[in-house]
Design a binder for these strands. Sequence first.
DNA 1: ATTTAGCACTCACCAACATCGAGTGCTAAC
DNA 2: GTTAGCACTCGATGTTGGTGAGTGCTAAAT
Lengths: 347, 347
Amino acid sequence: MLDNRKKQILQAIVDNYIDTAEPVGSRTIEKKYQLGLSSATIRNEMADLEELGYLMQPHTSAGRVPSLTGYQLYVDELMTQYSLTLEEIGVLKSVMEEKFDYLEKIISKASGIMSDLTNYTSVVMGPKIKKDSIKNIRLIPVDSQIILAVIVTNEGIIKDKKIRLRHISDFEGIERLEKAINSHLAGIESTEITMDRVVRLVNEAKVSDDITIAVLEFIKECITSQSKDDLYVNGSANILAFPEYSDVSKAKDFLNFVGDKENMMLAISQSASEAGDISIKIGGQDGNADYSIITSKYKIGDSMEGVIGLIGPVRMDYKKAVSVMKSVTDMINNKMLEITKKEDGHE
Amino acid sequence: MLDNRKKQILQAIVDNYIDTAEPVGSRTIEKKYQLGLSSATIRNEMADLEELGYLMQPHTSAGRVPSLTGYQLYVDELMTQYSLTLEEIGVLKSVMEEKFDYLEKIISKASGIMSDLTNYTSVVMGPKIKKDSIKNIRLIPVDSQIILAVIVTNEGIIKDKKIRLRHISDFEGIERLEKAINSHLAGIESTEITMDRVVRLVNEAKVSDDITIAVLEFIKECITSQSKDDLYVNGSANILAFPEYSDVSKAKDFLNFVGDKENMMLAISQSASEAGDISIKIGGQDGNADYSIITSKYKIGDSMEGVIGLIGPVRMDYKKAVSVMKSVTDMINNKMLEITKKEDGHE
DNA sequence: ATTTAGCACTCACCAACATCGAGTGCTAAC
DNA sequence: GTTAGCACTCGATGTTGGTGAGTGCTAAAT
């Protein structure tokens, strides 16, 4: 479709624009990137690229700026690899050497690292538990009103939640419910939590509905990972460093977007679900969006998976972002392995 | 010290400046506030007020702006009461009617409401548990590596934490530890958690040090309220709406300040501890601060207390902020009463 | 048939300059 | 003690012309 020379030029333009945030002109390309072409030729090619929709001109006598399609082509075909600097590797290493006990700490640290290294806004979604890897569920009455529900996965990760009820008296019932849930659990899907199944459970456990429903809600939450508490956002103030957000109202929009956790979870999980390992969503596709979202899935053994993401201006350093994200994903995987391995060694 | 007329004029100036964010001149005061004085007289008084240190002039031919001491006098003596509008009362009412099960939900909702109503950044610190109101502590091993530690207060509020250890085998030891802690608990102070005490506990429980230390750490956290998870910050993007933060670098400083939870907890608890019910800290006193912090304590029965706060530009609508804060504090108290009453009815 | 040099043209950006007006301080009259 | 009047200050706003980076086009060079 696009001949080689056009691609080279497009790549140079995108690279340069990502770097400088300024429309790039033909002379800049001629001097900075030795393509063996005169500015006039580049000029002609640029006119072509504009006609094809890969470039845009803010005004007649300005340089060119990549269009969304331009960025798309860039991330799909043109983008080169970025290698982390020694310093960056150092930061990652130092984190690798820290001891982590809990999933949450790793997750939140990962988010911090990502935003530190990229200066973009990072977001990490706590893992959802895969249906078939729940080792067991415990229901512990701690008070006359509160049950602590705990899910333990095969990998030894636990999630817990307090369930508050009007009054608990039927302790044996809760025990029966615990048993009933554990035995019916194998391979439960969130969509399979139907009234039917609930009725059967209630019958078996002979415990009041409200307890059962609350517990099942919790399980569903773990499977679909829809808890706001599991979302870690970092470095949203970074956005202000980018000239495209020196307009305060734009910055405000952005911060409101990133601050709204529901919204954010939706955006992240949508973006992630559509693609495989790493997905890049270039601004404006949601209609309301002036920024790009890069997401990557991480896995904890076979039992859990979650998503990490970076959000920044459309003029984002995609190659750096992608490479940092890969490293962080690896880091999470390794650190989790460490935690879960520890247990295996002992049992 | 200050005669009445000077106070009136100072009040008018502060009120107006809070409203408009613009230096206020003598003519404005003459027209907007009927003090029965000509602009010339007001001018003279303003010159006096400036000499006394209550006002400042950005430049020779501009109006006057309150100085920090000016604000201080204003909040101490001059500030009138603000009554919430019907609309604002409506918002609060609608929240009052919602059902809340959990402390955390109320807390986080309260934070949201506060920032919505004032357009400032709100922060709510989860309550710390008073030492003498811990009903009991439970240690529940849920896995070969994890103990769930749960504190239940007299009011029926619970806090819990996962404690991960290398390997747990000594289940009886944990039970002994639980008993030992519960019996030694009466009147424990965070400062009293010394090596000494730990040793004694370990001796009594005959369980390994690391478990004991981890559990005591958790208790300490609950007593001193030093958990980052219990801090809810809302509406930090609001700051961008204020002209004093249209300078992006200032806005960035602010957002970084508010985003740093450790920092924030320190600032809030310092501010709150110094005064009684409501404390107003006017910018700059920390050296690094360009903004004001208003804090108010809330209580849950006799067993817990926490802090809510508002952070905004020095030119803050103090009267509104204070009144909203009072209402929200009341709301928290009432809602908590509801939750804890529920239990009393049953027991 | 490309590529390139050359040139006229466009347009954002900036500095210099003038203008405006809100606000002051001071003096003199009330 | 208060106020009217006036000269003065100084930031904000608007205008103007120059500058330079960049373009598109044409004609010469390869």
